[in-house]
């Protein structure tokens, strides 16, 4: 049996960041990551050569999250996604102008349509390639690229091109 334990432990910080960014709440994110790791361990057979281990794990976390969202919505419940934990905090940033900017970035990303937001998180934050993102999300690569380009332009529009000097 393939041992994925060491890879899983090494990936844990990034998995958790992805989960927190995706669902915006620390305890839900931790629970998602834990369940995803258990699924991965039980279903190593599902790991195929065409998808790198990390993209495979992102996919499991992502599918668990949307599965949960779907179930809640199906029952007429909505998670209050505006109630973001302080976990995604920019307070460690000393420069006040930059801190303000990073806060605006977080808001702008939150304001994206969900299918654009999840691509931003995968490709721009987690550095997943277009191809792996397409496999992870089950989308054609052309769709991945057009959504991603739209999302990035919109973020830049909202921030103003001048803000680049602060990043």
């Amino acid at each position: 049996m393939t041992s994925i334990g060491p890879d899983l432990i090494a990936l844990l910080p990034r998995l958790r960041r992805y989960a927190v960014a995706l669902c915006r709440t620390a305890d839900v994110a931790d629970e998602l990551v834990q369940t995803a790791c258990e699924r991965a361990l039980a279903g190593v057979a599902g790991l195929r050569a065409e998808l790198p281990f990390e993209a495979w794990m992102f996919r499991i976390v992502r599918n668990l999250w949307y599965d949960r969202l779907r179930r809640l919505r199906t029952r007429g419940k909505e998670l209050d996604i505006t109630a973001r934990d302080d976990l995604v905090s920019v307070d460690g940033e000393r420069h006040p102008e930059r801190r303000l900017l990073l806060r605006r970035v977080l808001l702008a990303i939150d304001g994206l349509p969900e299918e654009q937001r999840e691509l931003m998180l995968l490709v721009c934050v987690e550095d997943v390639s277009y191809r792996d993102a397409a496999t992870t999300l089950g989308l054609p690569i052309g769709t991945v690229m057009s959504r991603l380009a739209r999302a990035r332009k919109r973020i830049a529009d909202e921030l103003g091109v001048e803000s680049g000097r602060l990043l």
Binding site: R17, A21, V88, V90, L101, L102, V105, L106, A108, I109, M120, L121, V123, C124, V125, A151, R152, K153, R154, I155, A156, L159, V161, S163, G164, L167
Partner: peptide, 10 residues
């Protein structure tokens, strides 16, 4: 900028 901003924020 769109990418750099996302990276910097997260």
């Amino acid at each position: 900028l769109g990418k750099d901003a996302a990276k910097a924020a997260y």
